[in-house]
């Protein structure tokens, strides 16, 4: 098992009186898909936003490639190579695929963008991910299907020599065939040696692509287990009760806020 790429220790986050994350630990390893599961309000999205620098954690330690780092904003996270693909995609409809993939990080000088280089890089990235569903990289995002948008959003995240990619419910709004495409893409990211964190509600997806499962229960990390060591039922118990037999929180009743 490789060294963790990204390691969280004792992360805490409160919004006013609401204590959303309690001493959360998480390890993300290169070349693995770590599924992050939990019921609504368990703190999954908050955890992702803390890693992405959108929220500042109140306390706790973040280690990236073994070194302690402080992520103060989205730019810090991006510089480390941490990319997030949000549930609501965060693509600008009126721009085309290339423009979206390079948004905020355009190549060329401020006064003259290097469109040629950006277009080439976008095509190469899509090609390296074996994306075959997009007709032209100059297609406006408004005319893409949900799956294609998700594909573009994911491809955008790997364009930046990123090392960790966090995917927030990438298949939530997709049909069967499109879900298939996206899951294949998620697997390919891991094969390319990235650390992937997949947030999902769909147990079938989790068991299909993930190597490890981390379960959040009411803001606490209930368990971090290898996917093939657990059953579907155990994961569901961990999500709903915070414990399942030997696994999970010792005294779940203290977990209530």
């Amino acid at each position: 098992m490789s060294e963790p790429l990204l390691e969280l220790h004792g992360l805490n986050k409160s919004f006013g009186p609401v204590h959303v994350l309690h001493d959360v630990d998480l390890k993300v390893r290169a070349g693995e898909v770590t599924a992050l599961v939990g019921d609504n309000g368990a703190g999954k999205s908050t955890l992702v936003k803390c890693i992405a620098g959108i929220h500042a954690a109140d306390s706790g330690e973040v280690r990236f490639q073994g070194e302690q780092v402080h992520i103060r904003g989205p730019k810090d996270a991006a510089e480390l190579g941490i990319e997030v693909v949000y549930q609501d995609l965060a693509l600008a409809d009126n721009l085309d695929i290339v423009q979206n993939m390079f948004l905020g990080r355009e190549r060329g000088s401020g006064w003259l963008l290097d469109e040629a280089s950006m277009e080439r890089a976008a095509r190469e990235t899509l090609a390296s991910l074996s994306v075959r569903t997009v007709k032209s990289v100059r297609t406006p995002v408004s005319s893409l299907s949900g799956g294609q948008r998700q594909t573009v959003a994911i491809a955008k995240s790997v364009l930046w020599d990123s090392k960790v990619v966090l995917l927030d419910e990438p298949t939530a709004a997709l049909g069967v065939a499109q879900t298939r495409q996206v899951l294949d893409l998620v697997r390919r990211l891991a094969e390319q040696g990235l650390g992937v964190v997949l947030i999902s509600h769909n147990m079938a997806d989790v068991f299909e692509v993930s190597d490890r499962v981390a379960v959040l229960y009411l803001g606490r990390m209930a368990a971090e287990v290898t996917t093939r060591d657990v059953t579907h039922g155990q994961i569901v118990e961990l999500i709903t009760a915070g414990r399942s037999g030997e696994l999970g929180l010792a005294r779940p009743d203290t977990a209530t806020v």
């Binding site: 959108i54 989205p74 997030v84 693509l91 009126n94 721009l95 423009q99 948004l103 990080r105």
Partner: peptide
């Protein structure tokens, strides 16, 4: 264009 197309996407893109 990005701000007009999707303000949130623009913000997240830095």
């Amino acid at each position: 264009y990005a701000v007009g197309g999707n303000k949130e996407a623009a913000r997240r893109a830095g």
